[in-house]
Design a protein around this nucleic acid. Sequence first.
DNA 1: CAGGCGTGGAG
DNA 2: TCTCCAAGCCT
Length: 353
Amino acid sequence: MDSFADNLLIWYDRHARTLPWRISPADGKLGVLPDPYHVWLSEVMLQQTTVATVKAYFEKFVARWPSVMDLAAAETDDVMKEWAGLGYYSRARNLKACADIIAAEHGGRFPQTQAELLKLPGIGDYTSAAIAAIAFGERASVVDGNIERVATRQREIETPLPDAKKDCRAFMGEVTPADRPGDFVQAMMDLGATICTPRNPSCVLCPVRYGCGAAKSGRQVEFPVKAPKKAKPTRKGAAFVAMRDDGAVWLVKREDKGMLGGMAGVPTTDWAVSKDGATGTGAAPLSADWKPHGVVRHTFTHFHLELEVYAAQTEPDGSGWWVAQQDLHGEALPTLMKKAISSVLPDAFKARA
DNA sequence: CAGGCGTGGAG
DNA sequence: TCTCCAAGCCT
């Protein structure tokens, strides 16, 4: 009894993180699997998003929609409002679409195999395997960023990501136990998050250090090897904060496709497409005495944005709605939009009593 | 299949 | 300030 899995699970039973969507070894419910709804919701939120950020969102969602049937009965706009600030907004639309399918076609119960889960919107290779393993005990092949790091270090896999992913999957196929596969993948992720970290890994505390090729050679931080990144271009655009006499702000709903799709915001130029220069009040959605309020800088995954913000007292026409300043926090406003509005109205999103 | 798609924290 | 990046998915 000295396998990779044994060593890792012994460590996990002592050091597992306590997380709101998880049944921890510390809960004393050995063998009890967590609610698939909780696993699914947390896994979708955790896609490219930190645990620290997700916790509060997860708690809010579960409090408001305790089951997948509740989420299916919700309005999409309300889901977008609760998701605001979490990013990657297509996840929220897919989340709702997935809940609708589970309610309508699966009687409110999640499919129990990776293959079936994979068919659902917003559930890909990783998430389907994670739900199957954690919620249903399937010995599925789970590979996420943490596991890629652990695997490439264990085996000193020199192939750059993402090509190394199949080697990582092979590694997981070798080490994943038939017993407790869900705990095992969570243990791998906890190890990657707390011990086998990108920088300054704590190898001296690692339960699987003796089998680790990179620890032996001292090349831990050289793995995983990644393809070089492309430089981010800088794009420019303009945003228009239209205000009514009573201070209310004019919002519009953005198109479902593209940047910040389906979210609310102030009117902007088409900065998602324009490479540059589409700024200035000439591009304003309506003519008014626009006053410049400086530039908001924001960085997305693949470009930097310099957004010139203009403000005016004006009555826009077209589709949109007025929102009193004290109600702005309840709208589906992405962080960029909160920044733009705050540059004109510094107190708009200040903490409320 | 390479690129689109957010955000906030760490170093 | 800037770079990296955190439990990826979709097209």
